[in-house]
Design a protein around this nucleic acid. Structure first.
Lengths: 218, 218
DNA sequence: AGAACCCTTACAACCACCTGAACAATGTTT
DNA sequence: AAACATTGTTCAGGTGGTTGTAAGGGTTCT
């Protein structure tokens, strides 16, 4: 999943970015809105984390124009403002969620998961594929009841496939899930990780569609 | 919109019910879970407001089983518990949002609106041709419910036909869909791929208009 | 009948993919 | 600090599905 982070606080921004990356998502971090505005017009994001602590309430107007343009990308607002009126105006402007600083990073992860669950139309945090049980929330996998450990990259690729389990995911999209967007690499990294996942999870879980991409079994 | 409210507090429940009704939604208010459980099996709700302040954490297990059954109805948790661990377990169990008591009724309205906005975004449009179901977004095809895999070229040709299903597409245009811009081909490639598609999808799906091109059935 | 168009099958060459293994980078223990 | 363990990345050989082409037969129109 590709996430846009708009946050002008160095320390908080870095912490959030690292947390998101640890969850296996690709992050683009902008500290200013004009940058992000440009990026938005050319790039497609799956989720936007928007800091409202910006001069002149630029964050809100940005969100408003975004919605006015017809974008339906999920937006979670991050802000220090705890006033009810702030929350209301944020939600009414088209935000999907509202998180008040200081917040816990694990709650951010959970809310990102909740919003993107809804977005991708897969609300179930517990999934089954044959003899596999996958708990997306706690990142635990059981094969025939036995716990299976994945590395960070392996999980990043798998969770990208799980976002829409019945869809065919192109290789380039999986590449974006592995490497923060824009890091173009000429390699067969995706194939290698698919191979390693199959070794751990079973050879019939991930289905290859030659020339188009991969998708989950079923 | 029909909303299920599970709340055992008389005063709060009444207030919430009135607020929702004032927003123009239909509300069913249950104070106990066994009732709501029965109601759920027979009735379809568009949104669930779930109070977690119930003995033995029944609210959470209810949510978990709801999700495990495959239900994707949006759920907003209402609770007095402000602990991070509570919020995490709620969100991880499949809740869409989490509201801590005491909350303002106007914020509840805003969050209901935010969640249902996301929910009503209709998912992938399915196209039907006889016993065929085609999901363009996920690039999946089902023939009599069974998944059919296409190769890259086959899909390229089919999706070109699907772009204007009722139009007759010329052979040269289909050729352009198969081979990126200007690549000269001296063969009957289009005919071959039409034949291969018919073999996989059925012989009456793609209609031949002699001398003009091809078109989807119907 | 002849011509133009279309359908299907077959086949060799190619290319996407798989996988083992080596190497680099990073983290951890002694 | 050195040795070790884990993870991430790259490379190369092998495999089989995909693909372009051609050939032969069928159908429709003049």
């Amino acid at each position: 999943m590709r996430i846009l982070l708009v946050e002008d606080d160095d320390i908080l921004g870095a912490a959030v970015r690292d947390q998101i990356a640890a969850d296996g998502h690709a992050v683009d971090w902008f500290q200013r809105l004009d940058e992000s505005d440009d990026a938005l017009s050319t790039t497609q994001y799956d989720l936007i984390l928007l800091d409202l602590n910006l001069p002149d309430g630029l964050g809100l107007t940005f969100l408003t124009t975004l919605r006015r343009r017809g974008s339906s990308v999920p937006v979670i607002i991050l802000t220090a403002r705890d006033q009810l009126s702030d929350r209301l105006s944020g939600l009414n402007a088209g935000a999907d969620d509202y998180l008040v600083k200081p917040f816990d990073l694990s709650e951010l992860s959970a809310r990102i998961a909740a919003v993107s669950r809804r977005y991708t139309g897969n609300p179930n945090p517990l999934m089954e594929f044959g003899d596999l049980e996958i708990d997306i929330a706690t990142k635990r996998i059981f094969k025939q009841g036995l716990s299976v450990d994945l590395t960070a990259r392996e999980w990043a690729l798998l969770s990208c496939l799980l976002q829409s389990p019945s869809a065919t995911i192109s290789k380039s999209r999986l590449e974006d899930a592995l490497y923060a967007f824009g890091a173009e690499v000429e390699s067969n990294a995706v194939e290698v990780y698919v191979s390693r996942l199959r070794k751990k999870l079973g050879h019939d879980i991930i289905h290859t569609i030659r020339g188009l991409g991969y998708r989950m079994k079923g």
